[in-house]
Computed example of a mutant assay.
Amino acid sequence: MLKRATSLPAAAVAALTLFAGCGASEFTYVKNSGEQTYFKVPHEWHEVGTKSLDDALTGLNSDSAAAGLRQRLWWSVAYDASADPSAEHLMTAGVTTEPILYARVAQTTEAQRDTISLDILRNFFLPVTEEARDSVAQSTSLTGFELLQDEVLTPENGLHGVRVVYNYDLGLGVLHTFDQTALVNNDGSKLYLLLIRCTTSCYAERSGELDTIATSFTVRSDT
């Protein structure tokens, strides 16, 4: 799997709030102009810090030099719809009845560029392909996998990737839905990720809202 220890220059997130029109939802528009990456989330969602989340995703000690370098090179943001917002809701094995979103832009290493494939992108967060699921079957409590959507994306020249939506029971008998969009530029030097998680019942109830967020994820690539 693609290791998550590399990333992109941290940049200030500019968020603008406005009304989309009469009767329409109010959104926060999130952008990193330097990385030409944009998406929107409902205005009532709460931004949460990503340092501990990035540490967990990379397996790095937060005091290590590698973690310090990552913080300088990555851009990542997270938004939680919970009334008690926490970045840990993305990683917990517990039940998340409100959606949480995580986005990242990251540089890849030369070694990673040689191995990035659509399947690597599919399996970026949790195992999705049959081969990946088989490889962890004996060492994980993940059960109840269901693939709901698997779409190859070519949003513009210079970018390609996938959007996968899938269900997992994380060990407590409750299905969760993960909606992941992962893109790379053509030389594989940059990875763009948007991940949304909540319980399957939550996802079904808010499917229109969550699809709007996922499809708002826009990247412009110079490569």
Rank of each mutant, 00 (worst) to 15 (best):
H89W: 09
Q138C: 07
F39P: 01
R70K: 15
I116D: 09
Q138L: 13
Q71G: 05
W75S: 05
F125I: 00
T115S: 15
L101P: 10
T58E: 09
Q107D: 08
E44Y: 02
A65P: 05
F125G: 00
T96Q: 14
V41N: 03
G94Q: 07
L142I: 11
F39N: 01
T96S: 14
L142F: 12
R133T: 05
W74G: 12
N61S: 07
V136I: 13
Q112A: 15
E47L: 13
E47N: 14
T140N: 01
V105W: 06
D80I: 04
V41R: 09
L90K: 07
Y79I: 00
G59K: 08
H89E: 04
V136Q: 00
K51L: 04
P42E: 03
T37E: 02
P99N: 12
P85D: 13
V128K: 09
Y79M: 06
N61K: 08
A66W: 00
L118T: 14
G49V: 02
E44L: 03
G49K: 05
N123Q: 02
S139I: 12
Q36L: 03
W75G: 01
G49P: 10
F125A: 05
S141I: 07
V105Y: 07
P42R: 00
T115M: 13
L121Q: 13
L90P: 01
F124V: 10
A56D: 10
S117I: 11
S64P: 03
P127D: 12
T108S: 15
L60M: 15
L60K: 03
Y38A: 02
G34F: 07
N123P: 01
I100V: 15
T92W: 06
L53F: 05
S86D: 15
A132Q: 11
I120V: 15
P85C: 03
D54G: 01
S139F: 10
L118H: 14
P127V: 04
A106Y: 09
T37A: 13
T58L: 02
Q138G: 14
D134L: 12
V48I: 09
Y38W: 07
R72N: 09
Y79V: 02
L69I: 06
H46F: 11
D55M: 06
N61Y: 10
A66K: 11
G68L: 10
T58P: 01
V48R: 07
N61A: 11
L73G: 00
A93F: 07
Q107H: 14
G68S: 13
A81H: 02
S135T: 06
R133F: 06
S86Y: 10
E88C: 01
S76F: 04
A78C: 08
V95C: 01
T140F: 10
R104I: 10
G68I: 06
S76E: 03
